[in-house]
Design a binder for these strands. Sequence first.
DNA 1: TGAAGGAGTCGAACCGGTTCGACTCATCGC
DNA 2: GCGATGAGTCGAACCGGTTCGACTCCTTCA
Lengths: 340, 340
Amino acid sequence: MNIGEIARRAGVSRSTVSYALSGKRPVSDETRRKIQDVIDELGYRPNASARALANGRTSTIGLVFPPAGNHYTGMQLDFIGSVVEAAAAHDYDVLLSPSGVDSDRSFQRLLGERRVDGAILMEIRLEDDRADHLAALDFPAVAIGRTAHPESGWWVGLDHTALAAACVHHLADLGHRRVAFVNRPEQLLRAGYESAHRGLDGFTKAAAERGLTVRTYCCGDDAASGQACLEQILHDDPATTALVTLNEAALGGLYRGLSQAGRHVPRDFSVTGVVAGRWAETVTPQLTAADVPAEEMGRRAVDLLIERLDHPGAPPRHHLLAPPISLRASTGPAGGTPSA
Amino acid sequence: MNIGEIARRAGVSRSTVSYALSGKRPVSDETRRKIQDVIDELGYRPNASARALANGRTSTIGLVFPPAGNHYTGMQLDFIGSVVEAAAAHDYDVLLSPSGVDSDRSFQRLLGERRVDGAILMEIRLEDDRADHLAALDFPAVAIGRTAHPESGWWVGLDHTALAAACVHHLADLGHRRVAFVNRPEQLLRAGYESAHRGLDGFTKAAAERGLTVRTYCCGDDAASGQACLEQILHDDPATTALVTLNEAALGGLYRGLSQAGRHVPRDFSVTGVVAGRWAETVTPQLTAADVPAEEMGRRAVDLLIERLDHPGAPPRHHLLAPPISLRASTGPAGGTPSA
DNA sequence: TGAAGGAGTCGAACCGGTTCGACTCATCGC
DNA sequence: GCGATGAGTCGAACCGGTTCGACTCCTTCA
């Protein structure tokens, strides 16, 4: 069941078996065939730990994902799925690492104990100690999201600034003048999550540019918070006629709040934002939104990481994506019905 | 940076360092302190591959999850998150394995190459070759779901039969007489997915028991399919006043279909089913449903697996869960408005 | 015809840990 | 005063691969 056993049965040395498998030195056809027969017969597969120990590569990448205590959003699910799939295509496995409460500990496991060849980071912050740490170690990593200093790193990012601005322009073009912004939870904003910050930034600037009256809100990642947030919005300014949101998980709650306030979407109230496409389609009316290309981002992150692993010392590369707004059914001209 | 370096700097042998770390043999306080100082100074962590090679355990469990080509449902996301979290609590990492198109290949990676100590299987089928294969190998595995022969295995399951029946009884108690069942996609039913089969079974039997008129449907895992399915239901029997579904991802589409057909939930039409709680709460009105305790199931699966790893040869254990129906807002008495 | 070179193979060292047997040295009981 | 006991330590073997250097043939070409 190990390489020695194969060698014995095939009547060759262990190194010959190794070379027959790796092809790193020539092996005669006859020998190769004999070895292959034994391998097929016994169903032999080389031990991954031994191989990793010998050649220093684990063929595994780490996926560092958000604290498990929080809810996961559908977008994160899409990232995970696409990363696993893309990694498999390159013959890499994916090790999940919760960068939760004790993020140091799991980092130590991944890097210190050499469990992975490289890492993909999710839920990036503008000032991200994990990213800094990895950069300082020159450890092969790719971020999904970009820090405040994006030039020096490897990442795949979404241009949240531009996307939020595009949402504002879309609403302004439809004649909306009083618009709310529903962000991720306050605790994430305080922690410096880049999507929350850049999205807010893009929203604010574009709104100023178009002379809109705006209010901005943080909202928990669940339906109940979304509903509460919407009540607050209408309480603070009943004349609000539209909102932009980054908060996928709150979307259902926002819709519920609107429906209970008697505002029809899109006749009385327009909703748009930045959300993964398949989740935008689950609500009624379907959400007009900048669709987060989660699958593409995961795939590109893996491709970049593989490239970095294959070419150590290569200069940093990155992709900044800015998908267009998909027009669905949740936005319409302002003033269909004057607000109560 | 390896154990020999630590030993050299501390002026002891490699084995002493190993014993100081593992505690498997006594080491004097003074020696232990010297070693610890060196370790702290250098930030040493033992190499996981070397350790795995030497003691035969990787401290990693494999999570075999569904084909990536399909959409993931929120429930699956919850499983993944809770499994990772529970595994971390036991000092295990989680390796994701897509059991996709080429499920043999990734199985070979996991088991043949000894990348994991044990495995957790998701999306179980009644006749599940993966489960059979693992059982034949006596490989430590725990299924989330149960096959047609549940006595012999380790698993954490949901009593879909009872849950679907409970939904039927709930609707029958409210006076509904014509009820539809919306299952997972036909391809999954054909493949023998246990939740689809047992759920259908429980629905059919309970409906017969209560003398209901029923139709059953398969429905794709997305909103568009849900909407189409609902149109079909009302086309086939416009007098239908309620439905039971196992299809979380189609839920938004079903609601949209109802709304577009002018059926108000719950006044004209009741909806219930088996869905993870936090997703039941994102739709409006919130879904009265048997809440899938995804988090608990993931946690219990990990606990069982750890137990099995720690006590090889222990007799099979399992948990069959049957959470009660959470009454929310999507069901009501039949006949509120006679159907058009 | 003999040196050069390449194909094919082997043995040994190595990767970085763990663990077993053996050794030394105190301590203790009789 | 001496053997038994156990704490503390070391060296060597081992886990299962990879890789380097060296060796043997067999061709090829001067």
